[in-house]
C-alpha cells in the first residue's frame, strides 16, 4: 500500500455569492489516520472534504495527495485520482431505481474504459469485490433488491460498500449519520473504523456529534467560520475549547 499523505496549504474557498467557506486552511494528514472533523454547520467542514476530491473547486491554495498536485488535475487524470477516494454522502446519493449490486458496482466505473462502463461490462473481479463488500456491510440477502426498497440505514451501508469497492486509499465521509436514526451511528462508524484498521486507509469523517468523534477518532480537526481552529489528538481537546467550538465564540482564543 502506497502511503497516502495529504498536505493542504493555505486552502481557501469563496463561493460566488461571497460566502467564505474556507479561510487559509493548512493541515497535514498522515497515512492511516482516523480523523473526525467537527464544527457547527456552515463552519466549512463539508467544503473542506469536497475540496479534497475536487467536487468543489478551491479558490486558492494547494492540495497534495501522496505528492500529486490535486488542483491541477484535469479530465482523465482527475477521474484516476477520484477513483482512489471513496466519498460517502449524508444523503447516500444512490441511484434508487437500481439494485444494490448495480449501485455498488458503479464504484468500479473509474477503473474501466467508458464504453465498457456504458455497457455495464464489469470484470469478474469487480463483481467479486462488490459481493464481498455487500457481504461485509451485512446486506448479502439484498444483493438484487432495488435500493428504494431499503431503509435509510441499509442505503447508507450500500453507499459504504460502493466506496469500499473502489478499493480507495482515502475515505471521505460527509456527515454519514446525519440523516439516520442516531442508534445507527455506531454501525456506520464501526464499518469505517474497521476498514481503517484492516486496510490502513485514512478516513476523514465530518461529525457534528462530539461524543462520537471522541469515541472513534484518533485525531480531531475543528472548524469555525471557515478557519481551522483546532488540530490535535482527542485528548488535547479541552472542555473549554469544546464549548467555544460549539458556541462559535472563538474570537476569545
Amino acid at each position: 500500500m502506497l502511503s497516502f499523505v495529504i498536505e493542504v496549504n493555505n486552502l481557501s474557498k469563496t463561493f460566488p455569492d461571497g460566502t467564505e467557506a474556507l479561510k487559509n486552511v493548512t493541515v497535514t494528514i498522515p497515512d492511516g489516520d482516523f480523523v473526525a472533523i467537527i464544527g457547527l454547520s456552515g463552519a466549512g467542514k463539508s467544503t473542506f472534504l469536497r475540496c479534497l476530491n475536487r467536487l468543489v473547486e478551491p479558490t486558492q491554495g494547494e492540495i497534495r495527495a501522496h505528492g500529486t498536485d490535486v488542483i491541477s488535475l484535469r479530465g482523465r487524470a482527475l477521474q484516476r485520482y477520484r477513483r482512489t477516494i471513496g466519498f460517502i454522502f449524508q444523503q447516500f446519493n444512490l441511484v434508487t431505481r437500481l439494485s444494490v449490486i448495480e449501485n455498488v458496482l458503479s464504484g468500479r466505473l473509474g477503473y474501466h474504459a467508458t464504453w465498457r462502463g456504458v455497457l455495464g461490462l464489469y470484470t469478474e473481479r469487480d463483481v467479486e469485490l462488490a459481493r464481498h463488500y455487500i457481504d461485509r456491510v451485512g446486506l448479502n440477502e439484498k444483493e438484487q433488491t432495488r435500493v428504494d426498497q431499503l431503509s435509510g440505514g441499509q442505503q447508507q451501508r450500500v453507499a459504504i460498500a460502493r466506496a469500499m469497492t473502489q478499493e480507495p486509499q482515502l475515505i471521505l465521509a460527509d456527515e454519514p449519520m446525519a440523516s439516520l436514526d442516531p442508534r445507527l451511528s455506531d454501525v456506520i462508524l464501526g464499518l469505517l473504523k474497521d476498514y481503517n484498521e484492516e486496510h490502513g486507509v485514512t478516513v476523514l469523517v465530518n461529525i457534528h456529534v462530539l461524543e462520537l468523534a471522541k469515541r472513534y477518532a484518533k485525531r480531531i480537526l475543528a472548524f469555525n467560520k471557515g478557519e481551522l481552529v483546532f488540530d490535535g489528538p482527542v485528548e488535547a481537546l479541552s472542555d473549554t475549547l469544546e464549548g467555544e467550538i460549539y458556541t462559535g465564540s472563538l474570537e476569545a482564543l
Binding site: N53, L55, R76, L78, Q79, R80, Y81, R82, R83, T84, I85, G86, F87, F89, N93, L94, V95, L98, E102, S106, G107, R108, L109, G110, Y111, T114, G117, V118, A159, R162, Q166
Partner: peptide, 18 residues
C-alpha cells in the same frame, strides 16, 4: 447520484448512463 458517480471517477458518459 451525479455527484456520487463523479466522485468515483466515472467519465461524463458513464455519469449520464448510470
Amino acid at each position: 447520484p451525479i455527484e456520487a458517480l463523479e466522485a468515483v471517477g466515472a467519465s461524463g458518459t458513464n455519469v449520464v448512463r448510470w
